[in-house]
Amino acid sequence: MLNEGVLVIGGGVAGMQAAIDIAASGREVALVDKDKSLGGHVKEYGALFPDLTVGSTLVKQKAQIIKENSKITVMLGTEVDKLQQADGTIIASFLSSGNPKEQIFTAAVIATGFDNFNGKKYGEYGYGRYPGVITGIDFEHQEEAILKRPIKTAVFIKCVGSRDRSKGMPYCSKICCMYTAKQALELKKAQPKAQVYVFYMDIRSNFKNGEEFVRGAMENQHVKYIRGRVGKVIPTNGRLLIRAEDTLMGVPLELEADLVVLATAMVPSQSTNSLVSQVGGKLDTNGFILPIPMAESENPMSLTKGIFYAGACGFPCDVKDALNQGSAAAAGVLGYLQSNRGAAK
C-alpha cells in the first residue's frame, strides 16, 4: 500500500519532525518506533533549555500534528529488522510482536537516537548503590518528586562518561553543560535556600543564549561552579560526603550533600549499528554515524542513496538541533525523490 512512501525509523523528536515535513509535501510516510509511544527520550523530559519548553508538551504537540495527518502511518512496537536497497527502492522487514512483515519504500530516514550512559560504570560515585545519587536523566523523569525533597546541599557532577578516555569515552556529549545548568536552576528556584554546586571540567555552553543561561544560574541564582573532578562519593551520617579537588584554587575539598546528580553522557543507540551497516553506511570510532564529507553530499543528512539520518544517532545533539536535522533530512528526502530517483527511472 505504501510502496511509494517514505520510511522514518525512530519516533523521537528528530524522526517526528522528519515525518511531519515529508508528509507536508503530500507523500505517504511510515513512522516506525520500537517503543509503545512516540517521543523517544524527550517525552519524559521536563523543561528544555533555553526557552524552557516542556519536553512532554513538545512531544504532544508534534504527535497531534502527526495524528491529524492522514499521510502518516505510525507503527509502534515495531522494529526494523532488515533494511536493503534494490533498484532505487528500499525494502524493510519489520518485526512487530514477533511477526515479520516486509514493505517497499522509496526513501528512508534513520533517526534511531541514543542510549544513556550507564552511571554505574563509575564505581566511585555509587550510582545504583546510594539512594541520594541519581543521573540527570533520573532528574528529568522524577523532577517533581526530587524538587519536593528537603535538600540542603545538592552536587552536580558533569562529564560522567564524557571526555574520559579511561572509560573509552573520548567525546563531549555536548548537552550536559546546558541541562545541568537548567536542573541546577530549577532546584534553586524550587528551594532557594539549598546550596547547589556544579563540578565541571570546562563549561561548554555554546548554544544560542547558552552562555547567558549558565551565567544567569551563577550570578542570579548563586549556583556555585567549581572547576574540578569529584574523586569519591562516600555515604556518611545519612548524607553523601563528596571528595573533590578545586583545580582553580589548587586545594582538595570535602562537602556533604543530600543529592548528587551525575550528568551522564549520550551513547550510540544499539539499533543504529546494524541498520547503518546493512545499507553500506559507516560508523565513526565512537559508534555514531560517520557523515559524508560536506562537499561530497547534496544534503548534509545524506547517508547512502535514498537514505538519510537525523538526530542523536549522528552525534549527541540538543532537542532544537534534533528538530533541525529532522527537517534537513526531510528536505533531503524530497529533493532526492524529485531529482535523483526520477532521473534514475
Binding site: Y122, G123, E124, Y125, G126, R129, S166, K232
Partner: peptide, 12 residues
C-alpha cells in the same frame, strides 16, 4: 589493572 581486574576499582 582495569583491563584485567575482576572487580571495579572504585567500588570493589
Amino acid at each position: 589493572n582495569k583491563d584485567v581486574a575482576i572487580d571495579d576499582a572504585q567500588y570493589p
